[in-house]
Structures are given as C-alpha cells and as structure tokens.
Amino acid sequence: MRWMHCLAIGTLGIALTACTTSPTGRSQLTLMSDDQLNQMGAQAFAQYQQELPTVGGAPLRYVQCVTDAVVQALPARERDQNWQVKVFESEQANAFALPGGYVGINTGLLEIAENQDQLAAVIGHEIGHVMARHANERASTQSATQLGLSVISSASGMQGPGGEQMMAALGMGAQYGILLPFSRRHESEADTIGLNLMANAGFDPRASIALWENMGATGGGRPPAWMSTHPSHGQRMGGLEAGMDEAMARYEQARQAGRTPNCPRP
C-alpha cells in the first residue's frame, strides 16, 4: 500500500506547482483561471435566479446597503467588480457570494440576522470565500484527488469486486481525509476574513457571535464536525472570539474614519 500512497502524493505534487497564497497566508492549490471562475459564478447566479423568485423593495434595498458598505472595504481587485445583489424568496437560511461579484441572500436568513451588523457578518463571510478563492481551491482539490485515484486504479490493475471495494475505500478516505477538511478550513478562514472585513466597513464585529447564537438556536441535528463541511457552532464561535480583539481595533479605526453604515432593517 505504501507505493500506492507515494503514487498518489506524486500525482498531487504535480498539481501543487499551481500554488497561490490566501489572504491569511495559507498555501493553496488553484488550477483554474479567474476568468473561468467568474464565468462559473455568472452561470450559477443565473441558475439560482431561475430556481427561486427574487424579492425587491425594502428587503433588497437593505441587503444592497449592507453589501455596498462591505464592498467599499474590499481590496481594489474585488472592490472594482460590478457587484450584483439579489434577495431570494426562500425559508432556507442561506446566503452566498460568487466569483465575478454576485451576492445572494434568502429571506429566511433575513429573519435570523436581527440587524445590519449581523447581516454584515453573513455577507462578509460569504465575500471572504471569494477573496480567498475557495471555489477555485475546492474545484482544484477535487480534480487533483480524482486524478490521484485514477492513477492508482490504472497502475494497480484493480479490477473486479475486490478492486472496486478497495477503490470505494480509497474514495471514502479522500472524502473525509482531504475534501471535507479543506471545506472546514475554508469556512474557518472565511470567518476570519469576514470578521475583519465587516469591522473595516464599520459594522460591529461582536454581532458575528450573536448571529451564530441565533443560527444555533434555529438549527436541528448536525453531523459530527469531522464529517461536516462546516465547523460546529461552538468551534465557529470560538474562532470568532479568538480574533475579536483585532476586529474590535479595526472597528474603532473605521468608526473614527467616519465609516458608520446606516442600513435600516425592514
């Protein structure tokens, strides 16, 4: 089995030549171009609009106001995109930001986020995924993992029921040992980026803790953290609390600089 492990590592090593660095300084595997990701973002945004009705009026103005304030705190590369914002009619408490400059918020989430600061925590987190190129990294990691498993299957001549069972076991190991941990890491990293981003925009970062308390109160049963693509609520709030001192310093600086968003909740 050792040679199979080495072969998989070697295959992934070829892909690792396309490395970048995230905003937090973490090394990343990014095989796709920004143009490819932006096109995928546009397609996903269009598909979402086909699947759910959109909401205008006061809810849209509210989300647009918070998003505009957060976007103004972005680095120039992300800030200068033509950000589009939509509110979708859905009870599911969901939100997203996509490469290319797209933000979507479900009405179900607006019921959980009690004020502009809590909504900014959500939007900052989602835009944090875009800033850190997590979509690129996830797609690249999946491609590299599938390539590694394919090479193992071909080189070892795994045929028949026994080989299929072995490949299924390897696939399960890749799912829980590579792909899901990356997703949890992305969520924690987006929390860190979003916390600082909302603070830089003049939103109170302490609202992020209250938001996740609200989410925890409304959530049902969850799988163990090691089987989930998201950290547990406790892990998430612990990470936010760990970065709160820096975020509060950024918040005070933003307020002193006149960044005082005023987005009334409908």
Score class of each variant (00 low, 15 high):
Gln36Val: 10
Met32Trp: 11
Ile112His: 00
Met237Thr: 15
Met166Arg: 13
Arg259Asp: 03
Val151Thr: 15
Ser156Glu: 14
Leu170Ser: 07
Leu109Asp: 03
Gly100Asn: 00
Cys65Ser: 02
Thr20Glu: 11
Ala169Ile: 13
Ala132Leu: 09
Glu78Trp: 07
Gly13Phe: 12
Ala46Glu: 12
Tyr102Trp: 09
Arg77Ile: 00
Asn38Phe: 06
Ile178Cys: 02
Trp3Val: 15
Met198Glu: 09
Pro264Arg: 08
Pro261Ile: 00
Met198Ala: 09
Met1Asp: 14
Ser156Trp: 03
Ser153Leu: 14
Ala113Thr: 08
Arg61Ser: 12
Met172Val: 11
Leu195Asn: 03
Val63Trp: 03
Gly239Asn: 14
Thr141Pro: 06
Gly157Thr: 06
Gly13Met: 15
Gly243Arg: 03
Ser33Gly: 06
Leu149Cys: 07
Gly258Arg: 10
Asp68Phe: 00
Asp204Thr: 02
Ala207Thr: 03
Thr54Arg: 14
Val55Trp: 09
Gln49Arg: 12
Glu51Gly: 10
Gln64Trp: 10
Gln159Thr: 15
Met172Arg: 11
Ala42Lys: 12
Ala210Cys: 05
Trp212Tyr: 13
Asn200Lys: 05
Gln175Cys: 06
Arg265Leu: 03
Gln36Trp: 00
Ala225Glu: 14
Met215Ile: 06
Arg26Phe: 10
Gly108Lys: 05
Ala69Trp: 00
Met40Ser: 10
Met248Gly: 04
Pro205His: 07
Ala76Ser: 06
Thr218Gln: 15
Gln43Cys: 11
